[in-house]
Nucleic acid binder design. Sequence first.
DNA 1: TATTGTTATACTCTATAACTATA
DNA 2: TATAGTTATAGAGTATAACAATA
Lengths: 151, 151
Amino acid sequence: MTVRTKQHPSVSSPTGLAHLANDLRLACMRISRRVRFESTDAVAPHQFSVLARLAEEPRTPRELAGIERVSAPSMTRTVAGLVERGLVSRQDDPTDGRQVILSLTPAGQTLLKDTRRRRDQWMAARLQSLSVEERETLARASEILLRVAGE
Amino acid sequence: MTVRTKQHPSVSSPTGLAHLANDLRLACMRISRRVRFESTDAVAPHQFSVLARLAEEPRTPRELAGIERVSAPSMTRTVAGLVERGLVSRQDDPTDGRQVILSLTPAGQTLLKDTRRRRDQWMAARLQSLSVEERETLARASEILLRVAGE
DNA sequence: TATTGTTATACTCTATAACTATA
DNA sequence: TATAGTTATAGAGTATAACAATA
């Protein structure tokens, strides 16, 4: 006799799709929450986001504000804090005197890397207790989810 | 010839495990972020968390503060706001005069349900564009993730 | 005149410390 | 004396409005 904790009659029926959407959203939110709670980060979430964006490429405050969905003055504050801590550096845009170009300092790169490693530790510990099949399922799922989140 | 977007040499080797942990954490955090951004909720995240906890069972402010990892005064404020909006009701504990028992009002239950439905909509829309196999993978993954998050 | 960024000001959520009521 | 909850106060993040500098 097989025991199933959840009813997923079909992943294609309207009801099944709604259930899957709910379970998946809940699962992702709970994992995110646990990761945040378990790792005591050196920077606040909104600061971390900015560091991650600047690691991709240097950006202006306005670009960051748009990406992070906060107001320009809020981003001014956030960036000021990161600059003060030596994690981000400012540079005048040579082609447009109104703009400022922000980029990560070596210290900022190090902190970002360390923070990510610490966050991964909790997750890695949990994964170790799973079966190979379960880990393979999660590997396939993470590819799909990253694609979905990027749309 | 199979094309893989990511290198997962093995989900069991130390390196593969670390990669999987990183991908999975990233995927969950990005999905959570998108869900939050796409749905303009009637209550703030910390208020939503409290409503969800009280939907499970009535609790005291102190219990909520512990679960949500905030100070007692912060929870006092959060709860006061929810009570003022008619979403949560207070009741004196008959066995201990110091304690207060908090529970959801019908309005709170309705709002919680509506908020969850709205959050699911974005996710359900994305799932529709996936193949049946991908949805089945995500269904299995969500079971595993919910179990892992609950540990 | 439009745009980038900052400053001024106010509101919210958070915390710690001090206080009240009850056990 | 210890615990549950609140109030007092301060710090940090967010927002809108107003301003400065540049395009």
